[in-house]
């Protein structure tokens, strides 16, 4: 397995964890009609899900970038 692929899989795992956590927080916020539920959604759930999406998109850019792939191979060689 190339390091680049391993790196992308790690990114996908991190993105998955963040999105699952964000979605769980959103579920909790939907069960509660209170101003704090809005804050919980707007600041915690949106941040976690947004960060998860961002990390996934970054992984796509890294996967498509030859420089990043080379960097990954170099790092793999050093290990």
């Amino acid at each position: 397995m190339k390091f680049g692929e391993l790196g992308i899989q790690t990114f996908i795992r991190i993105a998955s964890v963040l999105i699952i956590l964000g979605a769980a927080v959103e579920l909790v916020s939907l069960r509660w009609v209170h101003p704090l539920a809005f804050v919980l959604f707007a600041f915690v759930a949106v941040s976690l899900i947004g960060l998860g999406i961002l990390i996934y998109l970054v992984s796509l850019v890294l996967a498509a970038s030859p420089a990043a792939a080379n960097l990954g191979q170099d790092t793999w060689a050093q290990q």
């Binding site: 999105i19 979605a23 949106v46 999406i53």
Partner: peptide, 17 residues
């Protein structure tokens, strides 16, 4: 799973809240 659905969750959640 990591882009389309989460974006929909944010949009629909914001609308509901």
């Amino acid at each position: 799973a990591l882009c389309v659905l989460p974006a929909l969750c944010i949009e629909a959640g914001m609308s509901t809240h």
